[in-house]
């Protein structure tokens, strides 16, 4: 870990603190390396799963001689095989995450690195998919805690991109023949087509999902913008702008719209058992991640 601390993105204290957490899902897809994640694969392991008729080549140690004594036929014991958990981190680097101070992308980076560090620590496979206008699949799986620096490198160098499309990125990702694992989507989930399109795209992803919604305090309470009078809101990604007077009525209408926006995401998460964390980009990362794990949103 001492060598990893040289990377500017790596916060050694944060990484050390998150080691206490673990990322697990109910059942991962088979095909990985042996590790600690339950999978659908049967084979070597400690926990008994089933019996099967002996065929040539089976381990002789697995033959259950008690059954043979009673039935006169050879059966071998089959164990659940624990493999590594594939963790896919979908990191949004659209311009909307860069336009404020502190930027949402900075919080997203640190959150992604923290979760990736947990996975690497437990010998899982971590793969980063940055996305904005389209999905970037150039990065390979990383495994082993020694890959933390590489993970940080993969998370660091991303430029803001206008005209992002999270639905296209999720749809493309859903089409990849990847081993079932945990998909961590880190984004602000703002989309010009609206939240329903995002949720539809999320439904196509047949993995366990953890949604990290990166927020700012003024998203829910625009009065914290500390602005009044005539205001022109400019969209960070498009040329769209809105001229309005920040009156109580407008603030109330915005708050209601934002609540509807959040409620759709929360409802989806609740209905599908998807983990959801609203990450305050202006707040400390560790405390919010702790709350995530304490609530059991990640099994």
């Amino acid at each position: 870990m001492a060598g990893d601390a040289v990377h500017p993105l790596i916060d050694a204290e944060l990484i050390e603190q998150v080691q206490q957490f673990s990322l697990r899902i109910a059942l991962a897809g088979k095909g990985g390396r042996l590790a600690e994640q339950k999978t659908s694969a049967k084979g070597q392991g400690l926990e008994f799963a089933d019996y099967k008729p002996y065929v040539a080549g089976d381990e002789l140690r697995a033959i259950d001689w008690h059954i043979y004594r009673r039935l006169g036929r050879l059966f071998v014991r089959v164990f659940e095989e624990q493999q590594n958990l594939p963790v896919y981190i979908l990191l949004d680097h659209s311009a909307s995450l860069f336009c404020e101070t502190p930027s949402r992308f900075s919080a997203a980076q640190r959150c992604a690195l923290a979760l990736g560090a947990i996975a690497l620590q437990q010998q899982d496979a971590v793969r980063v998919f940055p996305f904005a206008g389209k999905l970037n699949n150039q990065f390979k799986n990383l495994s082993g805690k020694h890959q933390l620096f590489t993970l940080a490198e993969q998370l660091q160098h991303h430029q803001p991109v206008n005209d992002s499309d999270i639905t296209a990125a999720l749809t493309e990702f859903a089409g990849y023949p990847l081993r079932k694992g945990l998909v961590i989507v880190i984004s602000d989930f703002f989309n010009n087509s609206g939240m329903p399109a995002v949720l539809d795209a999320l439904s196509l992803v047949k993995h366990n999902k953890l949604l990290i919604q990166v927020t700012q305090p003024w998203d829910a309470d625009p009065r914290r913008l500390q602005a009044s009078g005539d205001i022109r809101f400019e969209d960070a990604e498009s040329a769209a702008s809105v001229d309005l007077q920040l009156s109580p009525a407008v603030i109330k209408a915005y708050t209601e719209a934002y609540q509807r926006f959040n409620q759709q995401l929360s409802q989806y998460a609740s209905d599908t058992g998807t983990g959801l964390l609203q990450l305050d980009a202006s707040g400390p990362i560790l405390a919010q991640l702790s709350a995530l794990f304490e609530k059991g949103m990640v099994a």
Partner: peptide, 25 residues
């Protein structure tokens, strides 16, 4: 038009929606 205060936000979608709802009262 008076020179307004320009604020760059992640998305103006919700503000557009708020303006429509507020003015239609």
């Amino acid at each position: 038009k008076a020179q307004p205060v320009v604020l760059r936000v992640a998305s103006v979608q919700l503000w557009q929606e708020a303006l429509q709802h507020a003015s239609a009262n």
